[in-house]
């Protein structure tokens, strides 16, 4: 039994109350255990082109890349990460190249860009790759924790001690990202691997959610509604809109089933002993 078949996905996306277009793109793929979200920006209404391109490159390329993982590289980065994680990093770089190529060919797409955050469940691990300020959160034992660090000017200011984290909501820099796809030939991709526990819930979201809804309320919605993942996704979007809905808002949820492959094996052993 693979972890993929134990992960349930649900998602919701909405233009919000203020904007006219939805430039967010999302996707899930149960076959390879993928959840991915891109928040497009810039260009003449081409933000949606950039985010949709990023998602399609990730979906197509990752299936191939995970099917034939390249032989272990010998540099330090390769030694620290699973081949799956490194494949996700390469696919993200490919998406960047593709966006740049399309932008060069179409004047209407000039200046378009997108954030990209993706996670892949693999056995008892989750691999995360991200560029920009679209976040991945984890709810574990009813506590919400942010697993990605925003590539935003605001987070840089807080980290440098220029702004207290409590004052961050007074800042006018929340929408300034320091990294994005479609910006430069080389893109710096953050990768991370974490253990997955049965009962974990993962939330991938665009800043339209976490700018409008406080973490405490996101945590509350996930804790209370984890039994009904599609409802939880819709309620999160609704909360962002109820609070003003200033931006596009997208959420992708994944729940790891309580019955893990490992536990299943142990239980069958005990079952055999009890006989």
């Amino acid at each position: 039994m693979t972890v993929q078949s134990r992960v349930e996905f649900a998602s919701a996306t909405d233009t919000g109350v203020v904007r006219k277009f939805n430039e967010d793109s999302i996707a899930t793929d149960s076959e390879i255990g993928l959840m991915v979200l891109a928040d497009g920006m810039g260009g003449y209404m081409a933000g949606d082109v950039a985010s949709a391109l990023a998602i399609s490159v990730v979906k197509e390329e990752l299936v191939t890349a995970l099917g034939k993982l390249e032989p272990e590289e010998t540099n330090d980065t390769a030694k620290r990460y699973l081949p799956q994680t490194l494949a996700m990093k390469r696919v993200t770089e490919k998406a960047n190249q593709m966006i740049l190529r399309v932008a060069r060919k179409n004047s209407q797409c000039q200046g378009m860009g997108t954030t990209l955050t993706l996670a892949v469940f693999y056995e008892d691990r989750i691999s995360i790759a991200h560029v920009g300020d679209s976040r991945l959160y984890r709810l574990r034992y009813d506590r919400l924790e942010q697993l990605t660090m925003d590539h935003s000017l605001l987070r840089g200011q807080v980290a440098a001690g220029l702004i207290d984290s409590g004052d961050a909501k007074l800042s006018h820099n929340r929408n300034l990202v320091t990294r994005a796809l479609g910006k430069e030939e080389m893109v710096e991709v953050d990768v991370r691997e974490e253990d997955v526990l049965p009962g974990d819930i993962y939330l991938l979201c665009s800043d339209g959610l976490n700018d409008m809804v406080e973490d405490a309320d996101i945590e509350l919605a996930l804790c209370e509604l984890k039994a009904n993942l599609p409802l939880a996704a819709n309620v999160l979007v609704q909360m962002a809109n109820d609070n003003g809905g200033h931006d596009n808002v997208s959420v992708v949820l994944a729940r790891v089933q309580a019955q893990s492959a490992r536990r299943g094996l142990l239980e069958s052993l005990f079952g055999w002993l009890r006989r």
């Binding site: 200046g111 000017l153 840089g156 929408n175 990202v177 320091t178 994005a180």
Partner: peptide, 23 residues
Amino acid sequence: MDYDRTMMIHAVDRKIGAVPLSA
């Protein structure tokens, strides 16, 4: 007033200071 759309900025030297906007 309304939120602005997300924008990319040049974090040229990654130092915190006056940061020019790309758009």
